[in-house]
Nucleic acid binder design. Sequence first.
DNA 1: CTTAAGCGGAAGGTTGGCTTCCGGTTCTAT
DNA 2: ATAGAACCGGAAGCCAACCTTCCGCTTAAG
Lengths: 176, 176
Amino acid sequence: MRADARRNRDRILEAARDAVAERGADAPMELIARRAGVGVGTLYRRFPDRGTLLAALAEQYVHELMDALDRAVAAEPDAWAAVRAFVVYSVEKGRGAIAAALAGTSAPQARQTLVQRLDELVRQAQADGAMRSDVGTGDLMELLNVFACHPGVIPERFLPLVLDGLDRRQPRRRNK
Amino acid sequence: MRADARRNRDRILEAARDAVAERGADAPMELIARRAGVGVGTLYRRFPDRGTLLAALAEQYVHELMDALDRAVAAEPDAWAAVRAFVVYSVEKGRGAIAAALAGTSAPQARQTLVQRLDELVRQAQADGAMRSDVGTGDLMELLNVFACHPGVIPERFLPLVLDGLDRRQPRRRNK
DNA sequence: CTTAAGCGGAAGGTTGGCTTCCGGTTCTAT
DNA sequence: ATAGAACCGGAAGCCAACCTTCCGCTTAAG
């Protein structure tokens, strides 16, 4: 693969990430190309169809999250603290609707590994009594998607709130 | 206004609500018409353009929320309980992306009244020490939008969690 | 029974995005 | 340095989806 070709490939992926973040999974191919500083032709040569492009994006995204998880675990001795750190990072990193847009397409095996590892951590945090136990790993992933879909005010205002909601203490029935 | 005309108008509004909920603010006019069991012509005669239709929808929606608020206040003596009840109702009622889709279009004065009344309630709940005070009414409305955008698993799983997060006790810094 | 209000949906027009294709350009191996 | 394979850009053609208008037929209502 020629050097310029590789460079373009990377640029395209980056541009696609931004575009998908802002405009959803069906962001115009031409927009992606222009942002990458590349012609549509180039885009199509590298990724024959939108599906291929999205799949590449998904794989990259999952890998990034995986790295983030590793880092969080390394940095935080406490399981619950690691979960928090991972969620915070993911929300900041997961620009726009990427996660949601890719939820279906997402590379199955990589994603599964990610979920599996996160699950261990969550169970640990719950076993420690630090995290409420009526919310599972699947819920957590879902939560990340929601945040990813609402960039801007939502994450900054509500992330702490939700994290507090996830914290310790069993849920108590309040009404009735 | 002829009886059949009125009936059709109502049906259209209902169909539009569903369609917008599922497909967003730019749901095809023809889809709306067909669901209402009506020809496109009828739809256009009643609502000359999409904007008019959306405005009508928004107004109706805001009125519903206002009623809900009144009911919540009447039923619950405690301010914080009323806020909770209102939020729960809104999330259940606010099908799909209606709220978000209409956020911009929304009838200004009615919306303002709604926000104003909710604000009183929120302040009361906060003054009672029952609701955390670093989240305002605006945030609450935003929250409703987010929930409205993610029908299905999100509301049911996360609403209690978020409500717990809103509850009492000042936020405490946890990390660092 | 009359008639004005109302109705349906085909048709025409517009927009916006997808893909292909090919003449020109740039790497890179020798 | 240079040949030639790989690569590039973007104009052009195609298509699908949607909007909106229009008019002959239907029906409520007095």
